[in-house]
């Protein structure tokens, strides 16, 4: 009877320890809310939209003025090549405007990235390393300049990279073809769509909280 009593006490003690351990674990796990991504930023979304509109207008202009084929381009006389409305010189300031706008987007995104928690920052850093290893950037110098930034900010760094490369391509060729501009239109639309999809996703549920 004594042994049964001892066993019963021991079992109750063990149960109490297990209970306390479970409660401690629950406390640790549910200690606080976490922030894995930076919060929804309406201004950033609106500015992204404005960026798209400016870029799209430049592309439409380029498409309208540009020759269709390599032969059409070659037939433009040297004497008037640089005066042609599709020439790079007519677009240089537009590219520069978009570059400045992309930098403004990067700054805005970076300013809100402080709100990501430690775990979120760590996870995002790993994800960016994986993406970088799978699909290396076309702008390694730009990548080094900004270093480790949030996924949101990194998207805008890649947007700047795109515009820089477009500017360089246009500068080298002098005059692009309609199809080049058409390809750019598709790319710009798809990039901005992907960015806005991710950023606006944060908004829907914040409103439902």
């Amino acid at each position: 009877m004594y042994c049964n009593s001892m066993v019963a006490s021991s079992n109750r003690f063990r149960s109490a320890i297990v209970t306390m351990a479970a409660v401690f674990l629950l406390l640790s796990l549910s200690a606080c809310s976490i922030k894995l991504v930076q919060p929804f930023d309406e201004k950033l979304l609106n500015d992204t939209d404005a960026f798209y509109k400016k870029g799209a207008v430049m592309i439409i202009e380029g498409q309208n003025f540009s020759p269709k084929t390599d032969q059409d381009r070659q037939s433009i006389a040297d004497a008037v090549f640089q005066q042609n409305p599709a020439h790079f010189s007519k677009f240089e300031s537009k590219y520069d405007g978009l570059i400045v706008d992309s930098e403004s987007l990067i700054l805005r995104a970076m300013s809100r990235s402080q709100e990501i928690g430690t775990a979120g920052q760590s996870i995002q850093k790993k994800i960016e390393e994986l993406i970088g290893a799978s699909v290396p950037t076309n702008c390694p110098d730009l990548q080094s300049e900004f270093g480790k930034v949030s996924l949101t900010a990194q998207n805008y760094v890649d947007l700047k990279c795109l515009i820089l490369n477009w500017k360089e391509q246009h500068r080298k060729s002098g005059i692009l073809k309609k199809a080049n501009w058409e390809g750019r239109k598709l790319t710009l639309f798809n990039i901005v769509f992907a960015i806005e999809k991710a950023e606006s996703f944060k908004k829907e549920k914040e409103n439902n909280k």
Binding site: I131, V135, P136, T137, L151, A194, K197, F201
Partner: peptide, 17 residues
Amino acid sequence: KMLARVRLRSLAIITLQ
């Protein structure tokens, strides 16, 4: 390639959210 990077990141952002 740049578009692919942005799409992957956007998928990651949505998944993390």
